[in-house]
């Protein structure tokens, strides 16, 4: 089973890279860009086929390593095989 983890800055944490991307879009003539937010996506291939076990395992991964709760939030999505 695969899990998709999206990790992004908490609201209020300034992301200068996202701000630079927003400015670049503006320079290229995309006048309607109000803001850009960036996220990291990890796709994790798991041995288990049990959705509950998979979610619990990935939740723990996020707490132990993948996200820093001081600056980031995360969202876990389980993907169908394939």
């Amino acid at each position: 089973m695969r899990a998709r983890v999206e990790i992004r800055f908490r609201p209020g944490v300034l992301d200068p890279e996202a701000a630079a991307i927003a400015r670049a879009l503006g320079h290229l003539g995309f006048a309607g860009v109000r803001g850009v937010r960036r996220a990291k996506v990890l796709e994790i291939d798991l041995a288990t086929e049990d959705a509950d076990a998979a979610r619990a395992e990935v939740e723990r991964m996020c707490e132990v390593l993948l996200a820093n709760p001081v600056i980031e939030t995360y969202r876990i999505e389980l993907l169908d095989r394939g």
Binding site: V13, L14, P16, E17, A20, N68, I71
Partner: peptide
């Protein structure tokens, strides 16, 4: 900070 011995976090420099 990552180990939790000090509070807060260090992120990308403001001007990149």
């Amino acid at each position: 900070t990552e180990a939790g011995l000090l509070p807060g976090a260090l992120v990308r420099n403001r001007r990149l």
